[in-house]
Amino acid sequence: MTAAVIDLGTNTFHLIIARISAAEIEVIYKTNLPVKLGEGKINENLIIPEAFERGLEALKGFNETIKQHDVSIVKAIATSAIRSASNGVDFVKAAKEQAGIAIDVISGDEEAAYIYKGVKATGAITGSALIMDIGGGSTEFILCDSQAVFWKKSYNIGAARLHQAYFNSDPINAPDQAAIVDRIARELTDLKEACALYKPEHLIGSAGAFETFAGMVDGETNIKQVRSAPIEREGYETLSKKLIASSHAEREVMPGLIKLRVDMIVIAAILTNYVLDISGISKMSLSTYDLKMGVLYSLTELERG
């Protein structure tokens, strides 16, 4: 069968179309649009009118593309921005009526489960690992090995939420950094306990900011051509310090840093640094497979019957 998966993220809407058999997944089309659904009032749990309309227009375009590919099943998955928004139900209704897209609003726990399936499919999990997926609205953590999930949780500390709440200086100053770290520390107390219990040896970052980290640390890595790639720890630490110390204007011209992540990458670096610190992990990797591929692999399981 041919399947389409739409990931309605807080910052970006993604569309991926693939031919699925019991044996393999062949991606035949993918695109994304910087919808910025969480713009302005994500911490007030509201999709502002401008973002609401951008989201609908993106879905209308996606539906036209889907019609061109003889798709037999469409899975549109909404995560933090829509599930927490007071008008999220209105957006889901409008998407069905105006764009012909039926949206499944999933829980943070379901989101983490899909992320695990996607990352597992890369073969990057070779021992005890901590998977981290930094979204705009939420961040997911999964403690696992290649056979099972030991612990997983989604937290409302996505990059867009933290950015809107605490990023008030340029470059980000020490008080703003301290406020972010304090918020992260209060939120992640049980993650710290879980890491002490399961002792992960490997941090695997799922797509997003980690694609930027990997690409900027190793400029020769073509992220679009790999399922996973190592992120050299010393190189990451140097990059992290540079990103946090830089101004918006300086980051805008850094090679490998896309416009959508010019500010969000600072939050991602602060969050990643904190997780590395509390977990004691020294090994880092990127998985280019994330929730979208996890949904596709779930459909593969259905094909197997």
Rank of each mutant, 00 (worst) to 15 (best):
I125N: 01
K192N: 06
A76L: 06
I82D: 04
G158F: 00
K117L: 15
A78C: 09
A121Q: 06
S279M: 10
V181I: 14
Q225M: 12
V119R: 01
E187P: 00
D7S: 05
G215D: 05
E301G: 14
R251M: 06
K259I: 08
I66M: 02
L257H: 05
G61P: 00
S228E: 14
L33T: 14
S154N: 03
A23T: 13
I265Q: 07
G219Y: 13
A113W: 03
G137M: 02
A165M: 10
I278W: 06
V149K: 10
S298C: 08
L56I: 15
Q147F: 06
I101H: 04
Q147S: 14
I157S: 01
E26R: 15
K120T: 02
E24L: 04
K199V: 12
E303I: 13
I134G: 02
A249K: 10
G123L: 06
S146L: 05
W151Y: 14
A159V: 01
D70G: 09
S169C: 06
C144T: 15
Y114A: 05
E44S: 14
G305T: 12
Q164T: 02
L15G: 07
G123F: 07
L243V: 03
R304P: 08
H69S: 07
V5K: 05
V92M: 09
L8T: 09
E140G: 09
S146E: 15
A4D: 02
E237P: 00
R186M: 09
D7F: 11
D104S: 14
Y29H: 14
I180N: 07
A196C: 10
K152V: 12
A196G: 15
A23R: 15
T126Y: 01
I17R: 10
I184S: 02
I281F: 12
L130S: 12
L37W: 11
L8Y: 05
S107Y: 07
G100S: 04
E220H: 13
G136Y: 00
G294N: 10
M284F: 12
T300A: 13
M254C: 03
P171N: 04
I281D: 08
R19E: 15
G208I: 07
A245T: 00
V217F: 10
S128D: 13
E111T: 08
H202Y: 09
V181K: 14
G108T: 09
L33D: 11
S285V: 08
A18P: 10
T300M: 15
A3E: 12
A269I: 01
E301M: 14
E211C: 12
V27G: 04
I47Y: 00
S287P: 03
G135Y: 02
D145H: 13
S128F: 05
Y236S: 01
G305S: 13
I103S: 03
T79L: 02
D277V: 00
I20G: 07
L143E: 01
A95K: 05
K36S: 11
E237C: 04
I47L: 13
K75I: 01
Y289H: 15
E234L: 09
L260S: 08
A99S: 11
I244H: 08
F167D: 12
